Amino acid sequence: MNKILKTVKTHKIKIIGVVGFIVAILVAMFFVFSSSLQTVLEINNEKINKKEFLMRYNILKQNAIEMSNRPDILDIEYSGMKYKDWLKNKVIELLITETLCLQEAKKRGMKLTFAEEQEVNNYINNIKNDKYAREMFYEYLKKIKSNEELFKKQLLRERLIDKLYKEITKNVTLKEQEMKQYYENNKNEYRMVKVVDIFLRVENEQQKAEKEKLANQLMAKIKNGGSIFDLAQKYSEITTKNGQKGVIDYFRKGEKESEFGSVFEEKVFNLKKGEISEIIQTLNGYHIAQIIDEKFAPYESVKGEIEQSLKKQKKDKVFQEYLNELRKKSVIKEFRNRIATIN
């Protein structure tokens, strides 16, 4: 009998221990859940909780890490503070702006049409229908601790805000003289250069050493009076559409970035006509370049581009002024202490 009672008592203790463990987990989960529902912003009596803040913060954080390729970017100094704190400030401002816009859209009775909502659905479905894009999409959602439903909700909100933007800025106009004046004042934006380029392509580590050695030999010849044009004809691995080896026809800054990289373009556009670059190392290989001619894209050929850019600048200014007025009339409360420990 004593043995039986002892066994029952032992099991009872184990059961109590398990129950206590489960209760502890549930209590911890409750505090985590309740913490995520803490209000971090209150805008005209509309509350934004920590969960919403975290979703937006995680998006900016992930984008920053991937674009900079620096996992430690959150702890670097930026604008007099840690970068993560700068991001938090950015999220607060984004949420305030977004909420004010959505509140204003609601006051105006603005809604998305069925067709506009369907465009968002189609966009997500197109991602999901592509195997590679789908994998990237779900991996991205996992990294920012979000899900498809929240992602879709955010796209719909952004679409409605864009609708408000168009309504507020619909009367913005642009005069021909404004565009011509901008063209004259910013002519370097429309500079076009013709370049002779000795390009030595690198496709593996073995080639890298060989091509670097060749680039140095060719540079030495040029400095000793050799013709860069003749050397390009012999060694360059660029062949243009007209079959002229080593010559890149007129292009503007940005037009060859996808082909040769931003480093190449930056170095070339810092050259004066006739000046020869030093050896330019890029991801694809080595370049030695010289600008052999330059000109400016005619006004008429870039008029549409200028119109689009200037009109957007004017619309953005009008919309920002509108937002500033909304903000002055609003009651905004911030609870920054509740996001202080977020990393």
Rank of each mutant, 00 (worst) to 15 (best):
Y78C: 06
Q181G: 05
F296Q: 06
T341Q: 06
L214S: 02
G261L: 07
L54W: 02
E210M: 05
Q233R: 13
Y286K: 08
D316T: 07
D130R: 01
Q206P: 05
Y322E: 11
T39N: 11
T113L: 03
R201G: 06
D197W: 02
Q313G: 09
R159L: 15
S236L: 08
N89C: 07
G304H: 03
H11E: 12
E46P: 14
N242Q: 11
E66A: 15
I339Y: 06
F335S: 02
E104R: 05
S258G: 11
Y190G: 02
Q177G: 13
N122Q: 13
I279V: 13
M67I: 15
L156Y: 01
Y322D: 09
V8W: 10
Q313V: 13
V196P: 02
L326F: 09
F269L: 09
L112D: 08
G274P: 10
N121L: 11
I144T: 11
Y132H: 09
E184C: 06
K329L: 15
V318F: 15
D197S: 12
V302F: 01
L200G: 06
K180V: 05
D130F: 08
S146A: 03
H287D: 04
F30H: 07
K111L: 14
G261T: 14
S309H: 05
F21Q: 03
I276Y: 00
I59E: 08
I342M: 03
G285S: 02
L41F: 09
K51G: 13
K245W: 03
S236D: 08
R336K: 15
L60E: 05
A220D: 08
Q206C: 03
F199C: 07
Q207G: 00
Q38I: 10
E294G: 09
D162P: 10
V193N: 03
I161V: 14
E93K: 11
T341Y: 15
E189C: 03
A105S: 12
I291M: 07
Q118F: 11
H287F: 08
Q290P: 15
A24H: 10
S34F: 14
E119N: 12
N126M: 07
F137N: 01
L37R: 12
M81E: 14
E46S: 12
E266V: 08
K208S: 14
N44F: 01
N216D: 11
G254R: 06
K12R: 15
K311I: 00
L214M: 12
S258T: 13
F30G: 13
M110E: 11
F137Q: 02
K84S: 11
G226D: 08
G225I: 03
V196I: 08
V19F: 12
L231K: 04
N216T: 07
L26G: 06
V263K: 01
I124E: 12
L74R: 00
E66S: 15
A115L: 10
V331G: 04
G109E: 04
L326C: 00
E52M: 07
G304M: 04
I16K: 09
N121I: 04
I124G: 10
I43E: 00
K107P: 03
I280D: 05
K241T: 13
E203F: 13
L283G: 13
A215N: 04
L155T: 06
V195R: 05
E205T: 01
I279N: 10
E119F: 02
I342K: 01
